[in-house]
């Protein structure tokens, strides 16, 4: 049956701003499946959608905020995490979710990422990692593998990339996972677990960018990246995130790497504040 979508029967349609569809992402972009997983995870985690604040930065993934029917904030480049920090601290009942890209969260916003993880702010960060700056035309990013071709590394990338699960866990995150957008059942479960988990949770979502990064790195078709994920992903729960480095077209270690209990920022704050004598 090929017809127009009937909103009533699509499980995530209620969370999409239908008046903004179709979205701006290219054919075969990995952001869409990641968004689907997140929207399904809301119901799966039984979170009141009225209490979710979704914050995005700038870039392709930054546009996620504009497509979801939640209180959603499209902020400045790199500042989604501190903006969400303000929201969360001012109204602790909110579930803060940051949905942004690798350039936004790890390059220009890298400092905020590590500090939010260190503080263990109760927040879920979903990082769509496509190894380049897609919105601006495919420049090298903080996660581009060595040797990768981008528009600003035409002879190949000469900078070692960040290993995001390692970065997040070393900074203090309570929950760290990595999945590709082919591992969608796992990704949906990981986002569910992350949103339920008190404290800072970080999910590295490996996603294709076929027309830009893919085209320059011999994976021009959307399916090329998906087949790469299918062939090269190694699932190892509990693996040491140190080993999660990604090389050009090399193996991708996936799984839940960190799932620990640590007092959240709010716990610590409440603990200290309880000593303060209330005065006016």
């Amino acid at each position: 049956m090929t017809d127009t979508l009937n909103a009533k029967n699509h499980s995530i349609e209620k969370y999409l701003r239908q008046d903004r569809m179709p979205h701006i992402w290219c054919s075969g972009c990995g952001i869409g499946p990641a968004v689907s997983c997140f929207l399904r995870a809301i119901d799966r985690a039984e979170i009141d959608p009225n209490k979710i604040a979704l914050v995005s930065g700038i870039g392709c993934t930054g546009r996620v905020a504009g497509y979801v029917k939640l209180d959603s904030f499209h902020t400045t480049h790199g500042r989604a995490i501190p903006f969400a920090t303000g929201l969360k601290l001012a109204k602790p009942e909110l579930k803060a979710v940051v949905f942004s890209g690798d350039g936004d969260l790890v390059a220009i916003g890298g400092n905020h990422l590590i500090h939010a993880a260190r503080r263990n702010i109760d927040m879920t960060v979903i990082c769509v990692n496509n190894f380049n700056y897609g919105m601006t035309g495919g420049q090298v990013g903080p996660t581009s593998p060595l040797e990768a071709r981008t528009t600003t590394t035409p002879y190949g990338n000469f900078e070692p990339p960040f290993n995001l699960p390692y970065l997040a866990s070393a900074s203090g995150a309570s929950y760290v996972a990595r999945w590709t957008v082919l591992h969608l059942r796992e990704l949906e479960r990981a986002i569910t677990e992350a949103m339920i988990k008190p404290g800072f949770s970080f999910i590295d979502v490996i996603a294709p960018c076929p027309p830009i990064y893919g085209r320059m790195n011999k994976m021009p078709l959307p399916m090329d990246s998906m087949h790469y994920y299918q062939e090269k992903t190694i699932i190892r729960h509990g693996a040491d995130p140190k080993e999660a480095d990604i090389t050009l077209n090399g193996p991708i270690l996936a799984g839940t790497f960190v799932d620990i209990e640590r007092p959240t920022f709010q716990d610590q704050l409440n603990h200290i504040s309880s000593k303060v004598n209330a005065q006016v």
Binding site: M1, T2, L5, N6, N9, H10, S11, I12, E13, L16, M21, P22, H23, W25, S27, G28, C29, G30, I31, G32, P33, V35, S36, C37, R40, V181, L182, L184, R185, E188
Partner: peptide
Amino acid sequence: VVDDESKCLACGFCELICPEFAIT
């Protein structure tokens, strides 16, 4: 397009993987 709906087992993977939220 649907080639042969009688083959569908309703696993829903197409719905999940569709980057355009176009399938249900």
